[in-house]
């Protein structure tokens, strides 16, 4: 299974990014091979709807799980219709969150926020 995480830098030691839709990169971790790849978030500079576009990227990466500190309602709508489970990160470090997930210690992200539509872009 593939696990996606929004991250600040294209580096295995990177931290989880505070934003999902406007994270610079997504780390895609493959649980079988234990390998990580990075995809650039082309939604980063979008004037609007960044969450939707970022979610589309995650769907296209064929990830089954997303780890993120927060997620807006439009992005969550896209991810849910693709059957992707969203878990809330608990640590800054990507590795700690991945370990936590495999130990069953991360819980699903319940409080989906209403998004920041129109703030900054429109």
């Amino acid at each position: 299974m593939k696990i996606a995480v929004p991250v600040d830098e294209k580096d295995l030691e990177t931290n989880v990014c505070g934003s999902f839709g406007r994270a610079p990169y997504f780390l895609i971790y493959e649980t079988e091979t234990k390998k990580s790849t990075f995809i650039e978030n082309s939604a980063l500079a979008s004037p609007g709807g960044a969450g939707i576009k970022a979610a589309q990227l995650i769907v296209d990466s064929q990830a089954g799980v997303l780890l993120t500190p927060r997620c807006g309602e439009n992005a969550a709508g896209v991810l849910e219709s693709a059957g992707i489970k969203i878990y809330r990160t608990r640590f800054a470090s990507v590795k700690e969150n991945l370990d936590s997930l495999s130990n069953g210690k991360l819980s699903l992200l319940e409080d989906i926020h209403a998004g920041f539509h129109g703030h900054g872009g429109e």
Binding site: A43, S46, P47, G48, G49, A50, I52, K53, A55, Q56, V59, N74, G77, V78, S81, A82, G83, H117
Partner: peptide, 22 residues
């Protein structure tokens, strides 16, 4: 999906989704 500057469209699981409010 690629054209929309505001990302009001997404293509998920063989279905196009339109976000009216975007």
């Amino acid at each position: 999906v690629d054209f929309c500057r505001f990302n009001a469209l997404a293509y998920i699981k063989d279905r196009l989704i339109v976000f009216d409010e975007i």
